[in-house]
Design a binder for these strands. Structure first.
Length: 270
DNA sequence: AGGGCAACCCGGACGC
DNA sequence: TGCGTCCGGGTTGCCC
């Protein structure tokens, strides 16, 4: 569920809250969420300072002052809350990192995880298969075309393929296709050069716009956080089956493409 | 190589 | 209120 804009947004807020802070305590309530025995996890995290946080694709990487790196993937339904115990959400907490009297709660980690790696090199090896970052300055139209030319398949399927492009999921793939005016089930290699150009621009536009509005996650990251989730009611097609297209008024269609819910407007998208 | 699909996982929403 | 049922959905791995 959380995709690139959500994770980037989380990263920016968490950097403000956590950079330079020391983890005073660790609680692991769900051992499947970590990749080592709890004792090892605790020994490597407790008492250590968070020196930086980065995002790669839909992952967040928490760099510790002992060289270890925490790798977070929220997968489906995972989210976080940062705050005091009295403001803790009434939800099952899988993992809790404490920073004095404030805590970072990891919630809804069903398939999601917070893994620990011994070094930056180890975690980079783990993430080596990911495709380019769509918002990186290195990701030029030339590189985009090179990607397209060596791949086949449906637009939707490729957009959510993390080895093709990283960070785009089910919601933003639909929003990008709507913005580009292209039907998600079109074959990638049948798009015209102007459609490719538009697609490239739409990827940037939609992701940046979503980030600017705090992504679509509904839960605030901390008490008084009014920024997170601002994009939730700005989605044009995602999860709007049967509702009117905001551009032309036609009904939004839902269709399964590669066993994924896909939403689009037959009138606005060709 | 791409498409299709099952498995993973379990909180919480929903129904009775 | 309380208990049972079922859904969601990114990712991996397997098969065709």
């Amino acid at each position: 569920m959380p995709e690139l804009p959500e994770m980037e947004h989380y990263k920016l807020l968490l950097l403000q809250k956590l950079r330079g802070k020391t983890v005073s305590n660790v609680e692991v309530n769900r051992e499947k969420s970590i990749n080592v025995v709890p004792e090892v996890f605790l020994n490597n995290v407790k008492g250590h300072q968070i020196i930086n946080i980065e995002r790669k694709a839909k992952h967040l990487l928490f760099y510790l002052d002992n060289g270890h790196v925490l790798l977070l993937h929220l997968m489906l339904g995972g989210w976080m809350f940062y705050g005091k115990d009295e403001d803790k959400p009434d939800r099952t907490i899988q993992i809790q990192l404490s920073f004095g009297n404030e805590h970072l709660y990891f919630i809804g980690l069903r398939l999601g995880f917070l893994h620990i790696y011994n070094s930056k090199a180890d975690v980079e090896k783990e993430l080596a298969g990911l495709g380019p970052e769509p918002l990186s300055p290195n990701f030029t139209f030339t590189e985009f075309m090179a990607l397209i030319e060596k791949r086949r398949g449906r637009l939707k399927t490729k957009l959510v393929d993390q080895q093709f492009l990283s960070g785009i999921g089910n919601c933003y793939s639909d929003e990008i296709c709507f913005h580009a005016g292209t039907i998600p089930k079109r074959e990638l290699n049948e798009l015209s050069s102007s459609e490719n150009k538009q697609l490239f621009e739409s990827i940037h536009h939609v992701l940046k716009d979503a980030l600017k509005h705090g992504g679509y996650m509904e839960n605030p990251l901390f008490k008084g956080d009014t920024l997170t989730g601002g994009y939730n009611n700005l989605c044009k097609v995602y999860d709007r089956e049967g509702e009117s297209c905001l551009r032309c008024g036609s009904k939004i269609i839902k269709e399964m493409i590669s066993s994924r819910k896909t939403f689009y407007c037959l009138n606005c998208q060709k």
